[in-house]
């Protein structure tokens, strides 16, 4: 029974939380938020998915991509740093400003870096939650089997 509720909650809440996270990430440079917070929020949201769908199933779907996601995050971050060399030195922030429909939009390497941070945090958090949940599931199964045998 609880599974159904969980699935329902997952179906609605997870996209919502992820949306909030993206919002927090985008405004992070100006208001509280940013890569860390957004990443942690996404990880927490994905725990809902894990709970509702079962760790093993989720792992088969996302599992192989988590470590590469961490790698991608690191890569984005270090590339953001390396881009700075073009502007005079490693990690030098470079910005492009343009107007989109009257709003001033600025994009820069620090934000790219922040994106890398977010990816790493998501990858790390979900790796742990997923692996531990899966291990926990396996242990319960294993114990059940062992309990039957004698």
């Amino acid at each position: 029974m609880t599974e159904i509720y969980l699935r329902l909650v997952n179906l609605i809440l997870t996209p919502l939380i992820i949306l909030v996270a993206i919002l927090l990430f985008l405004r992070g440079h100006d208001l509280p938020g940013g890569g860390f917070i957004a990443g942690l929020l996404v990880a927490a949201a994905l725990e809902l998915t894990i709970l509702s769908r079962g760790a093993t199933v989720t792992r088969e779907q996302y599992g192989p991509w988590l470590i590469p996601l961490v790698g991608l995050g690191l890569l984005v971050a270090v590339i953001a740093g390396l881009l700075g060399i073009y502007g005079g030195g490693f990690f030098h922030g470079m910005w492009i400003e343009f107007y989109l429909g009257g709003d001033k939009i600025k994009m820069g390497t620090p934000q790219l870096f922040d994106l890398g941070v977010m990816l790493v945090v998501i990858g790390m958090g979900v790796t742990y939650l997923l692996r531990l949940s899966e291990a926990a599931e396996a242990v319960s199964k294993n114990d059940a089997v062992e309990g039957e045998q004698p």
Binding site: G28, H29, D30, P32, G34, G35, K106, P110
Partner: peptide
């Protein structure tokens, strides 16, 4: 280019 000083530092 950011008003959240903590994030800019980070």
């Amino acid at each position: 280019k950011g008003s959240n000083v903590v994030n800019v530092i980070l």
